[in-house]
Amino acid sequence: MPSSEQLAQLILSGITQGSIYALIALGFVTIYNVTGVINFSQGEFAVIGAFVAITLSQKVLLWHGQMTASLEWPLPVAALIGVAAAVLIGVLLYRLGIQPSRNASPLSQIVVTIGASIALRGLVLLAWGTDPYRLTPFTEGPPFDLMGAILTRQSVWVMGLTVVFVVSLFLFFKYTLIGKALRASSANPGAARLMGINPQWMGLIAFALSAGLSALAGIVVAPVTFMTFDRGLMLSLKGFVAMIMGGLTDPVGAVVGGLILGVVESLAAGLISSGYRDAFTFAILVVVLLVRLGGFIKGRKGEALERAGL
């Protein structure tokens, strides 16, 4: 039997990791609700945001080691530019990839975002190579002791900032005009259009917002785990699983799904087998898909399923 300290430790690191999945899943839900697209390059935004922030704030070798960047700008500035870079790429993806193919099948649109994800991964590899990079933790200092488990300061940052991001996103959706317009066009695109809300613009904003959110997730987690060029795809898959766990269109569900996914994954990896960490995610996915979707959700959430092509 594992000790209670060990369990607490696994749960803590699960929540830290799960926060990131939650943020990425929120991005998925935002885009899906407004445009009906599943954006598989979501994880790539996290990678790009993190790499840009790392490059601007600390010493980094670029372009096969032929260039050294040692700008050492303050972290908030670097993070802001990292987010801006991801937002720009998100906007470009929407304008050049999604908008022109908006009448294509969902399958074609998924493939468009997968293509974009592969291309972005290649660009990251080109610029930063295969070396793992770690962002300096936001604040220095010894870790906290929580019921015998170690809680690093960065984990506190991760959890705290996730709460801040999620709450501000909900406030944005609830109280701002743009937020309301976004909700309107996801609830009823036709009626929203009649009220003068341009669905094209809403799609663009959704992509920009989600890209920025993912970039923030990537930057916040970069001091906890090393960032490598190939992490994007797996982050996308995890975010998508969290989104499905939450019921596909439900932002609150996506956040809860992300946290549960992080904890279950951490427990399974710690107690059963670390080599199969990612396999547990998909085992959960299969259970959720086959048990829940085939069963009791179908009646109640028929609309959501219909939009997913079910």
Partner: peptide, 24 residues
């Protein structure tokens, strides 16, 4: 160009996206 595998990845990624957008 003094590169290795990354060019291939970039080209195929863009190729896949472009084909799906322009010539599904």
């Amino acid at each position: 160009l003094g590169l290795t595998g990354e060019l291939e990845i970039i080209v195929f990624g863009f190729l896949l996206a472009i084909i799906m957008v322009l010539l599904p």
